[in-house]
């Protein structure tokens, strides 16, 4: 591996997690460097969402530890924001703009009114929703809702962005547009991202590295510098996933 000298932003060491005696994750080890976009891929039920929730601090590991910038993750925090698959993650009672401003208004560091507004404008533009700031979520399409959710997460400038199949419920065309937007945002913000998906092509298109999870264990970590979504590459990973 290159860049060994750079401290990892996330260190996952020998993490185990089981639900009601059934092991979900076994002995997971992973280090994520700043600016990386990691895709976690696996069949449903392989533990990829659990892994994301562990990183975010939403659930506790049975054994092992997770460190964010060297500090033990014990509960969810504002440096590590999750974007969900569900469209109803937006607050129905607030406009797109107010959804994005919401975490800023309730920030421990008091931001000025102007600061909040300009940040919201900035991220609205970034997700291409400048003209939709005054819309309520129920007036938006699925893709626009997920764009809003992304902007709301980015507005906090988190050190780590956790994305739990955010484009999983979108049609192919919209999904493609959002993937492009995500890559553009990455160019601009260099935000470290852990992106969970079960779509191999999505992973190949987005990721710097792909973590293949199989039956609760890391089956492979694949470097993906080429971003080549050829059928051969897809078949390669499919082979890794199949039992």
């Amino acid at each position: 591996m290159k860049n060994v000298d750079v401290n990892p932003i996330i260190e996952i060491c020998a993490v185990n997690k089981s639900y009601e005696g059934r092991p979900v994750l076994a002995d997971i080890n992973l280090a994520i460097r700043p600016g990386e976009l990691i895709c976690v891929i696996g069949a449903s039920g392989c533990g990829k969402s659990t892994l994301l929730n562990l990183i975010g601090g939403f659930v506790k590991a049975d054994r092992g530890e997770i460190r964010l910038n060297g500090r033990l993750v014990e509960k969810p925090c504002r440096q590590c924001i999750m974007v969900f698959q569900e469209f109803d993650q937006l607050f129905t009672w607030q406009t797109v703009r107010h959804n994005i401003e919401f975490p800023l208004k309730n920030a421990p560091e008091r931001l000025s009114h102007q600061e909040i507004r300009s940040r919201a404008d900035h991220y609205l533009a970034m997700v291409k929703l400048t003209d939709f700031g005054d819309y309520y979520p129920n007036q938006l399409s699925g893709g626009m809702k997920q764009r809003t959710a992304l902007a709301r997460a980015l507005a906090l400038s988190p050190q780590l962005l956790l994305m739990d199949e955010p484009f999983g419920s979108l049609d192919a065309q919209t999904k493609k547009e959002l993937q492009e937007t995500l890559l553009e945002i990455r160019q601009e913000t260099r935000a470290t991202t852990v992106f969970v998906t079960h779509d191999i092509r999505e992973a190949l298109y987005l990721a710097d590295r792909i973590v293949v999870l199989k039956a609760g264990a890391v089956a492979a970590v694949i470097k993906n510098q080429t971003r080549n979504t050829d059928e051969t590459r897809v078949a390669e990973i499919t082979a890794l996933l199949s039992p």
Binding site: G56, F58, P76, R78, F84, D88, Q89, F91
Partner: peptide
């Protein structure tokens, strides 16, 4: 209330009352 709202509240470091 959808489960995600509770998670979002935790994510923003709100206590229960908040």
């Amino acid at each position: 209330i959808p489960e995600v709202y509770k998670k979002i509240g935790m994510n923003y470091e709100f206590n229960t009352l908040q």
